[in-house]
Design a protein around this nucleic acid. Sequence first.
DNA 1: CTGAAAGCGCTTACAG
DNA 2: CTGAAAGCGCTTACAG
Lengths: 345, 345
Amino acid sequence: MKRKVTLKQIAKELDVSISTVSKSLRDSAEISEDTRLKVQAFAKLYNYKPNNIALSLKNRKTKTIGVIIPEIVHHFFATVISGIEQMANESGYSVVVCLSNESFDKEVLNMEMLANGSTDGFIMSLSKETQLKGDFHHINEAISQGMPVVMFDRVTNDVLCDKVIIDDKLAAYEAVISLVKMGKRKIALLSTVDYVSVGKLRTEGYTKAIRDNDLPLEEALIVRIGDESELDSKVSALLEDRSIDAVLAVNELYAVTTIKLAREAGLQVPNDLSVIAFTDGIISQYSTPTISTVSQNGIKMGEKAARMLIERLEAEELGVEEEEQYRTEVIDTQLIARESTSVNT
Amino acid sequence: MKRKVTLKQIAKELDVSISTVSKSLRDSAEISEDTRLKVQAFAKLYNYKPNNIALSLKNRKTKTIGVIIPEIVHHFFATVISGIEQMANESGYSVVVCLSNESFDKEVLNMEMLANGSTDGFIMSLSKETQLKGDFHHINEAISQGMPVVMFDRVTNDVLCDKVIIDDKLAAYEAVISLVKMGKRKIALLSTVDYVSVGKLRTEGYTKAIRDNDLPLEEALIVRIGDESELDSKVSALLEDRSIDAVLAVNELYAVTTIKLAREAGLQVPNDLSVIAFTDGIISQYSTPTISTVSQNGIKMGEKAARMLIERLEAEELGVEEEEQYRTEVIDTQLIARESTSVNT
DNA sequence: CTGAAAGCGCTTACAG
DNA sequence: CTGAAAGCGCTTACAG
C-alpha cells in the first residue's frame, strides 16, 4: 500500500527544497524551466495530488458546502440536492449532506459539526421542530461567525440571509382559482399546522382566493395535519361533507391519501372531487388517477441556492464584503394539469 | 462579524502558551487545576471549538465518508444515503455525497476530488457507464492508497473490497417461483442490459426458476432495456404476445410502465397479467394497482455499508492492519404481496 | 533561480 | 506545572 506522495518526499527524492517543488508545480515563473519540468515529470509519475486538507488550512477555505435538510427520502429534497450538487461541482465545490430528520437537536448538532471549519457555508431548509420552537440561534451564530447561509423552501424572517423560495401564497391562490374556473364551489384545504412556514403561506393564498371569489370560507374546510398519523382520520372526517367538490393539498402524500379515501367513500375523482397537490413528484405522476400539481422545481431551487452561496463566498474572498444585501429569489411554479382535475377521464 | 476564536488568541488573552491552552482544554493532568479551569471558562465564554481542518491535518484523518452514487433522485439511493448518514453520525462521521449521474468520467472526477485527503474512505455504487466500460482503475487506485472502499448494490468482482448486496439471483428466483405457484405459466422478464450487474444476476435467477419448473425459456420473453427511451416500445412489443401471464421487472419504473401499457392494451392486472417489481419504493405503494415487490432495504444496506467502512477505519487506526479479509454482506429481501399479484382485486 | 522561514490551527513528546 | 519545538502538508513573501 503506497501512501499518497507529498511535496516533502518529492523534494527529498529530487534533492531540492519543498518550496521549489511547490513553485514548480504551480508553474511559477521564478523557477528555471529545467527544474520545473523535472519536478513536474516526477510528480506526474508518482501521481502527486495536493492534499486538500492542507490547502484548506492554508487558504482558510474548504471549497465545500454544507447542506442540511429535514429528510432525503423525499423526492423534493432529493431533487434540490441534485441541483446543488450539479452547480457546486461545476464550481469546484463538494457537498456534504446532513439530515436533521425534522429534529431541532439534530439540526443544531449538524451545524456545529460542520461549522468548525469543515465547510465554507450552508444551504438549508428548516426542520419542523425548529420552526415550531422558533429558535434559530445556531443559524445566526454561524452567520455571525462569517459563514454565509442560504435558506430554501422552509425559511424564516428571523434569520437575515439569502433565501430561495417559491411564492407559496400566490401558487396556492392560483391553484384555487383554477378549481373555481372548473366550476368547483366548495373547496377544502389540506395543510400542515401553521408553524410550518410553507403551510401557513399556502393557507393564506387559499383563504384569499376563496374570499376573492365570494365562496364559503369555513374553518371546517381547512384541515391542518400535525402528524401523519392523524392524516387518515382527519381526511375521512372532512370527506363526510359530500358537498365538498375539490381539495387543494399542500403535498403529494396528502393528495394521494385523499384520493384513496375518496374512492373508498364512493366518490369519483375528478368528477365528484377534484384534487390538486403541491410538489410535482413521483407519486403524482404514477398514481391513478395521475395528480394535478403545483410544480416546485427542486433542481432549479438547488442550483439557485448554490449559485447564491458560491457568489457570496467568492465575493467575500475578493474582500468585497458587500454591505449585507441579502436577496430572496422566487422560483416560478407551474400548474400541471393531470387526471385528478380533468373532467373527461 | 466575530471570527472563530483560536487557541492562539486564547493563549494571548490569558498570557499563557498555546500548549497550555491546548492541554487544559483536553483535560490533561499535566496542567494545574487553576489554569485548567481558567482556560476552560474562557474558552466556554468565547465558545471555542477546535478547528476540524487543523485536526484533520494533524491526525491524518478527516472523520468524513465519501459517498458516490449514480443518482439521488431515486428512492432506493436516497434511502441508502439515509442509512449511511444515520450510522455515520452516530459514530461522529460526516457524509459527503457525490453524484456520478451514471457517467464514468464524473465518477472518476468525484473520486479524485475526494481522494486527495477530503475523505477517509468511500461507499459507492457503480455508474452504468463504469459497468459498461469495466474500468475500475480509479477505485483500485484509491484502495491501493489506503482508502477503504465499500461497494453496494452495483458491485464488481474486479475490485477487491467489502461489499453489501442483496442476493439478486435468489430474489429473482423466488419471485418467479411465487408467480408459478399462482398458476402463471408464461412469465416474461424486464431487465436491464447485461452489463448492469444486478440486471444480469436477476436474469440468471429468472432463467434458473423457469428451467427448474420446465416452463418455456424463450429469448423473446427476456427484454433487456438499455435506455429508458426504448422502454415503452419494447414493453408494448412484448405485450403483443397475449399468452404472457406475468412479468417480473427489475425495477419499479419498468413495472409501472408495464401496468400502464397493459391496461391500454386492454389487459387486466393482475388477472390477465401479474406483475412483480424489484425495489420497494414509493411508486409501488401508490400506483393503482399497488405493485408487489421484492423489497430491497436501502436503509439497512446503507447502515451496513457505513458500519463496515467505519470498522475498517477504526481497525486501521489501531494498526491492526488486518490481512485484507474482505467481506460481502448479503441483506435479506422480502417478497411483498400487493394488488398487482393478488387475484381478488 | 533556489531555499529558509513563517504561518494556517492544532497536538504532543520533550525540556526545564 | 509550563512552554518551546516539531510536525501534519501546503504556500508565499523574503533573502541570498
